[in-house]
Design a binder for these strands. Structure first.
Lengths: 244, 244, 244, 244
DNA sequence: CATGAATGAGCCTTCATTCAT
DNA sequence: CATGAATGAAGGCTCATTCAT
């Protein structure tokens, strides 16, 4: 059964074949982003694609394979549409961080893509499918590495790899927040868009926030005097404390 | 449907009736956190609760109502188990920020709750149900306000409300990242736990990162000289730039 | 998933529950015997049973389990309706062989059972399902043993177990022929029933044939002189021979 | 449908056209024997034949016609590969019976044909298709007649046609048992092959068994003294008897 | 009151067949 | 001629929900 004949690996473009295939990929992207893998029905996808109920099975074998294909394509599309600007020798690390953040935000919030990539990724976080492994390997890990390089340039050789990872996650966390938490943002600040419209604002804020943080953390000797922190060390015992 | 008569508001405690109701809430919490609302089946929940297939409909009217009840309860539970430590007059804003971050992380990652609250919230972000409105009103908005107060104390009266919001989102984004992106973290850094085990590390990192950022942003006059940033302001035109 | 709740192992009789269950078993027996496992549709079975499409799944878990249940029940039914008559101390082995053959024929051809058991068994021979293992263990092996005992009494202690097996298969082969090859018999000898109607004729023929064979084979010393067989031993080399 | 115009009667041999047709017949034989008509899928057959999905419909009109063609061809093939050895004037009826039994067993069990013919016939018994009529007329009836001739020579002119038929069925029943009941044999006597490997053993056993039976039945006057059978004739009343 | 058998809509998938190219 | 994309009916199964008991 695993070897059932399905022309799923076809790559030759052109022809009526690919028209339906394309329509299915497009319809699938819409539907999967809208309602997620499980709520999506092949019937709906096929209807939107103007194809027969069996079209998904014919072209992709099954719903899950179509999903994986859509996810990968949306990822490639997001990357292609919003690539990291090439950095020259005179591009400062700060600028490269800003570039990274802007590109990342664009990919997950971009109106051109109807934010499909971002929404599909968000769902994947909550209900990972087999497609995630591939995505991590092909897309996320390289991005993570790229960010690490930028951050290393910013902090110098001192901080450990582990510290670098934490810094990176703080940056990425800020970005993804606007993607993952839209439903709350809409309810919390109605009327205020936190999406592609305000992409520039968000980019600049996250960049400035992160740069300030990284610089502040890289210069601990300067800091202690500025703010009268509690004499107690900032590493309190793990147990919960209660103060009057 | 929500207004149908069902004895959900019964007050007589004890007895088999309430025992079943309790069991359903507990089983529901487990199942909903594990597989999400849509994957969860009433049969499964009832079986785990040792109750009849119709028990959910009998006690809660329908699956969605049970879900809302479970979500609200888990939220209350998380709050009760990991409350914000009371701040005294001598508690520094920095300490209060750390407290906020630690409590937040505990609520969403806590092993005691099997991270149920966090996982349910994460799912709610991706596939909001009617229960979210109530949750925002009763739990999220107050938390947001509390964070704003802390941040205002940190930055002084200068920055706008809008800026405060952005700062808050940067803080919260960092926190939620560890909750929302577990599937990627596991694949990206296998063997490295980013959960309750490392709660303290994460708390201190996010706190330090955020404090450094906030302070850096609050003292722009000191910064300019330190790093030779591009003469161009950090607000480049929205269009994409290409450099050699 | 393997532990899904299904009351399939219910045994308490009586009540409306069992009415539907019974109807499904009956309808299933009809349909499975008529068209076989794969051609049978649960829709058809449920319709005939006056039940809902989901009834099979509710009561038996799935189509295959219903089938196994039906097969086992038909087997038990055939056995119960046509048991081997108890043999007394003065019952000759020849009589016991006749009893065995008659009972066997009745079970597979009996009109009372609409020959359901026989037809289901015949299909099982051609397309064995998991249910066959159980059937062999619980029903066929004991029958095989019983026949061996009878034959041993007929041939005495001389012949090997292996020989006994071959004798048994010759007896059973004759019986099953009328069950397995009905479609050919109908076409070959139209108008001549080889079914329950002629059960007695068939019983007596097979009995006489088999007894004569067993006796003839048990007295080889007497035989050689009677018929002028070829001087060549009756065990020719395995290769094919060609004669003018 | 069988009368639709399809170029099946093409006579130009060679060429890709006939090659595909041949490949389909071969692949079809494999698949039909393996899984039966209904489980076989046109896709599978075409794939194995290295042909297009539509090839079956193109070359044979539909699946059923291909099946009939395959069945007929396998039958012819079995006959051609294992013909009845020509009997000379000095060939004894006993030898001719042995020849008949051996050839029959070879046809249905032969490893050269992967027992395809036998398995297809067995399936045909359980789920007759339109192809069976043709098979009975062209192959089975002649074989049946040939057997009758042999048996008539053995029993002399006395016994009726009806008796002859019963004798024939006893012979054929023994043979087919090893073909039809393989699944049970495997489970009942694991490790003991009842297939082509033991063709000679089976041939000799069935021949000896049948000859002894036929002879015994043809000489009733000699028998009575030998075995102290019950005084009651072997034709008991049809009703079931119970003995102490 | 609580049960659990029954419901029926709906989902994914399979498959023989057709038809434009 | 031969292809293979497209068709659409149908099948097994799941599931939240209902309702007689």
């Amino acid at each position: 059964m695993p070897d059932k004949f399905h022309p799923q690996t076809r790559s030759a473009p052109g022809g009526a074949h690919d028209a339906t295939r394309r329509a299915l990929l497009d319809a699938g992207a819409d539907v999967f982003a809208e309602v997620g893998f499980h709520h999506a029905t092949v019937r709906d996808i096929c209807r939107r694609a103007g194809a027969n109920v069996a079209a998904v099975n014919y072209h992709f074998g099954d719903k899950e394979t179509l999903y994986a294909e859509v996810l990968a394509e949306q990822s490639r599309l997001a990357m292609a549409l919003h690539p990291l600007p090439a950095a020259g020798p005179d591009t400062t690390p700060a600028q490269r961080l800003e570039d990274f953040i802007r590109a990342f935000l664009q990919r997950v919030l971009s109106a051109e893509l109807s934010a499909r990539h971002g929404r599909m990724m968000a769902r994947e976080m909550v209900e990972p499918t087999r497609a995630l492994d591939r995505l991590v390997a092909e897309s996320i890990r390289p991005q993570s590495a790229a960010l690490s390089v930028i951050l290393r340039d910013l902090v110098g050789p001192g901080p450990s790899e582990e510290t670098l990872r934490l810094l990176g996650m703080s940056v990425v966390g800020q970005i993804l927040f606007y993607c993952h938490c839209q439903p709350v943002l809409i309810r919390l600040f109605p009327g205020m868009p936190f999406n592609a419209e305000r992409l520039d604002t968000l980019t600049l804020h996250i960049t400035a926030f992160s740069l300030a943080a990284v610089r502040g953390l890289s210069q601990p000797p300067v800091a202690p005097a500025r703010v009268p922190r509690r004499p107690k060390t900032p590493s309190p015992p793990a147990g919960r404390r209660r103060r009057s």
